[in-house]
Design a protein around this nucleic acid. Structure first.
Length: 276
DNA sequence: CCCCAGGGTAGGG
DNA sequence: CCCTACCATGGG
């Protein structure tokens, strides 16, 4: 990935069809990005605020050092992966071609593991707008302040000590106890997220499923968006519709091993385009 | 009143 | 293994 560093900003040259920041950050895989009134997108990665703008084939990361770009953003945005090649394989399928023609600029992010785990516990039987509000309030109440309006995601230690009463008013509903249970298991070391990177996928699934509030779908989301396990295939209500309508006999073989990437194109397409 | 949202759990066949 | 009621919340 080529980059230019000047005036404290980092600029990368891309093809917009291969990397569209707006499609990537607002396709439902992450929940903490917002558009500013002056045309930027802002969010938090770990303990830092990131500010981004895209002008067609130029993406600018504002106030971003060369070190930060190389050490964090290249990995986070999956910049070393050739999506053109992946998509050309997926496009042998007619439906995937439509989804990729619609929004092929989506890339799979590598997001912080505990944050993704909690976020997708919140996501169950919920809608994206409300998931975003709940997570924002969790960060405001229990995260560390970074700068005006921005907070880190709470640590497992912090969340494990929170009472159910303190979680009232966040629209968590019945999921409040799931969050505390999950944080306790991670904080105590009963669940070790760091080993899920390298262990067998079957064991990774079993480990996540042992957390109360994590079922099959949430586990697949956590492995896909937090661990880059792109063979995972979360089936939510939208993907169910996709499967019923287009793949009653199962996914095409072209998706083998990268089902999760295919899933994100299909999810975004069905949720924001075809259903309207 | 209904149904739906990036579902999971508990309980009973 | 399957099926189903129920779960809290807000929007349409």
């Amino acid at each position: 990935m080529q980059y230019v560093f000047e005036n404290n900003d980092c600029t990368i040259m891309v093809q917009k069809e291969q990397f569209d920041i707006e499609q990537t950050l607002f396709c439902g895989q992450c929940f903490r990005y917002k558009k500013t009134d002056d045309g930027y997108i802002q969010g938090v990665i770990g303990d830092r605020v990131i500010k981004i703008v895209q002008y067609d084939d130029r993406i600018i990361f504002k106030e971003c050092s060369e070190e930060y770009f190389k050490e964090v953003l290249v990995d986070y945005f999956d910049l070393d992966t050739d999506y053109e090649k992946i998509k050309s394989m997926l496009c042998s399928d007619e439906t995937l071609k439509k989804a990729i023609d619609y929004a092929g600029g989506i890339r799979i992010l590598k997001q912080p593991k505990f944050e993704i785990l909690c976020s997708f516990i919140v996501s169950q039987n919920n809608n994206i707008k409300r998931i975003e509000r709940t997570i924002e309030m969790m960060c405001e109440r229990f995260g560390e302040h970074i700068s005006d309006g921005f907070y880190t995601f709470p640590t497992p230690e912090k969340l494990s000590q929170v009472t159910i009463e303190q979680l009232q008013g966040l629209s968590l509903g019945y999921r409040d106890r799931y969050i505390v249970d999950c944080a306790s298991k991670v904080a105590s070391g009963e669940i070790d997220l760091s080993i899920l990177d390298s262990c067998e996928i079957k064991q990774a699934r079993e480990t996540l499923l042992s957390i109360c509030g994590v079922g099959k779908k949430v586990a697949e989301c956590v492995l896909l968006f937090g661990f880059y396990r792109v063979e995972c295939f979360p089936v939510d209500t939208w993907i169910k519709k996709v499967m019923d309508k287009y793949y009653p006999k199962g996914l095409p073989t072209s998706t083998k091993g990268i089902e999760g990437i295919a899933q994100q194109y299909l999810f975004h397409y069905m949720r924001t385009f075809e259903s309207k």
